[in-house]
Simulated assay, not measured.
Amino acid sequence: MGLFLRTSGQGGLAATDPASLCVVWHGSERAPDALRADVHVRLQALRAAHEGAGVAEYWTSDARVQTVRHGQAVCKHDGEWMWVALDTASADAADIATATRHGYDALFAAMQREDFPYLVRCWNYVPHINADQMDDQSGERMERYRLFNRARQEAFQAARQAFEVGAPAACALGSHEGSFTLYALAARRAPRCIENPRQISAYNYPVQYGPRSPSFSRAAVMERSTGDSLLFVSGTASIVGHESLHPGDVAAQTEESLRNIRAVMSQANATQTGSARFDMSRLQYKTFVRHARDAAAVEAVMRRELGSEPIIHFLLADVCRAELLVEIEAVGAAAAGTGEA
């Protein structure tokens, strides 16, 4: 069965289509009623045709979709792919550790109930990600992103999910309002998890970045029934080894982020069979900038490096490290006769 993505950069979306697996709305205002969004990510859209209007992602299947609910988890699946959207409206945004643990516990319980054992991709939006809060375990103040990482890894371990080698692709961005937001793609087959030779794997970061390392792979590759593969690139920033580079220079950080995505894509291509390859110009990008004023400079770099063909959406968000100004994620299908070494 196929899994397909369209976005608001590709024309109208038939939100009432019975093959809809997940509709994600990114915007500071609520989604249009006609969209029937499954997830609302409270981030302001930038550099869109209608500034701030929002960005819609519309994931569909070519098979019959079933919808079930398990507690706070709404699951939509076609027998091969399952999207899980977590209702976190009642979560205490002030206690990110508890909200994260409850969200992931609910996610893993739903995956078990529906027999989708493998996480492919997770999206996390953490209010005030770089702020500190009191840590109940240590009795000291700790950055909320570090508390999120600890709670996420504890949930992975409790569910016996891979939190190092084999962990899903993921991102964690900071929102300025709302509750913790989590949604995920699961499958009945394991993804091919991809790492970046330019970077230490996130799950091996040294202890200076917090008591528990981030539990994600740099990318994940999944085959579709259409005979090709989908590449999910995790949120990618200006990090080489484990260190942030180019502080204060958003253009240089964007260039470094794209070098990292290119390296990940090359690693993914090395795992491909046949002639189909991933290509930077055929991916779709979501780009998160810390400051709205930087969006034009980031877009200029991306268009210079990628050309005019790729769809790029820009959103205002905090990046997981305070010194990082931009983060980029991508998704796309392999195509025959394309790709870069």
Rank of each mutant, 00 (worst) to 15 (best):
T226Y: 12
R160K: 13
A184T: 01
A252Y: 02
H242K: 07
H176R: 15
S217R: 02
P211R: 12
G241A: 03
Q208D: 06
F180M: 03
P197D: 05
Y209Q: 01
S179F: 08
T254G: 00
A162K: 13
R189F: 14
S213Y: 09
A237M: 06
I200P: 04
R144L: 00
A237G: 13
T236E: 08
E243D: 12
Q253Y: 03
Q208P: 05
S238I: 00
N149D: 11
L173N: 07
A187G: 13
E164H: 12
E223T: 15
H176P: 10
T181M: 03
N196H: 01
V207A: 14
R141A: 14
I194C: 04
A187P: 09
A219W: 05
I239F: 03
D249R: 02
T181G: 02
S225T: 13
M222A: 13
F180S: 00
N204H: 12
A169E: 01
F163R: 08
S213G: 09
P247T: 04
S244T: 10
S225Y: 13
L173R: 08
G227Y: 01
A202H: 04
F180Q: 01
A237L: 07
P168I: 03
E154D: 12
A155N: 00
A184D: 00
E243L: 05
E223F: 11
P247Q: 08
G235P: 04
N204A: 13
V240A: 09
Y145T: 13
R152G: 04
R144I: 01
A190M: 09
Q157A: 15
F216H: 11
V233K: 14
S213K: 05
I200T: 14
Q153D: 11
S213R: 14
R198E: 12
R144K: 00
R224N: 12
